[in-house]
Structure formats: structure tokens, C-alpha cells
């Protein structure tokens, strides 16, 4: 079928717990997507991953039909878990909320590799390190 894309919408939401409330309702409703339909599908497919943030990339076509693919958890979420901190720093230039090792960064980069637009693992490592710094998480040796 001829598919002209109307929007690419990525949602960072909790696995198995999607509801028509924000952010899903307004994010999809404005593009004419059948909200309940998406909510049901997403929850079914992510039920086994409860407790994690499972981002989903939704492609909305011009005729309001859509497809979606789930992605790996956000690097920020993985970094928070690795560093054992609840949240990133308010002022990442001045504050350090925690630290992660180079090995932990590498592990996260390997997991995220397929969802990052990095050419190789070294590039992915750089991106994850950048995210860590922006959150006030120090990268150790």
C-alpha cells in the first residue's frame, strides 16, 4: 500500500501500563490514531517487561493507520540503574550525582547500539558517555 508518513512519534512509557491519559492520548490523538487500539497492542506486547521504560516508535501514515516497534530502554534509564541513583543532576556542570565504570558504559552502549545512530561501538560509547555527563554522572575508568 502507498504509505506516506504523517508523523514519527516516539513515546517513552512504562511497559504494560499504557493508558489513554497523557502523554499517549494527546500525542497520538492529534495525528488521528485510534488511541485505545494502540494502548491495547502496546500493553499486550510489553506485559512481560513490567517495571521498565520501553520506548516505542510509532509511524503514523497519512490514512491514520500506524505501525510501531518497541525499542531498548533509554540510556538515561540504564545509566540511572547502573549508577544506583534516582535522578540526574539539576545542574550537570556543577553537580555529580553518581558514577559508572567504563565497563558499565560499554555494556549500555552494546545494548543500545541498534537504536543509536552510531556507526560503531566506539561511537555508541561516546553517545552514552555524553548522556551520562549531561546527567551529572561521572564516568570512571
Amino acid at each position: 500500500m502507498a504509505k506516506r508518513v504523517r508523523a514519527y512519534v516516539k513515546l517513552q512509557i512504562a511497559a504494560g501500563k499504557a493508558t489513554p491519559a497523557p502523554p499517549i492520548g494527546p500525542a497520538l490523538g492529534q495525528h488521528g490514531v485510534a488511541i485505545m487500539n494502540f494502548v491495547k497492542e502496546y500493553n499486550e506486547r510489553t506485559a512481560s517487561m513490567a517495571g521498565q521504560v520501553v520506548p516505542v516508535l510509532i509511524t503514523v501514515y497519512e490514512d491514520r493507520s500506524y505501525t510501531f516497534v518497541t525499542k531498548t530502554p533509554p540510556a538515561a534509564d540504564l545509566l540511572r540503574r547502573a549508577a544506583g541513583v534516582e535522578k540526574g543532576a539539576g545542574n550537570p556542570k556543577a553537580d555529580r550525582v553518581g558514577s559508572v565504570s567504563a565497563d558499565q558504559i560499554r555494556e549500555i552502549a552494546e545494548l543500545k547500539m541498534k537504536d543509536l545512530n552510531a556507526v560503531d561501538l566506539a561511537g555508541a560509547v561516546k553517545q552514552v558517555e555524553g548522556t551520562a555527563r549531561s546527567m551529572g554522572i561521572e564516568v570512571g575508568a
Partner: peptide, 11 residues
Amino acid sequence: ARHGYNGGVVI
């Protein structure tokens, strides 16, 4: 995600 409803974010 820290402040948003249900921790949800739209990109």
C-alpha cells in the same frame, strides 16, 4: 520523565 505524568515523554 522525572516530572511528567506517568513518567511519560513524547519525542
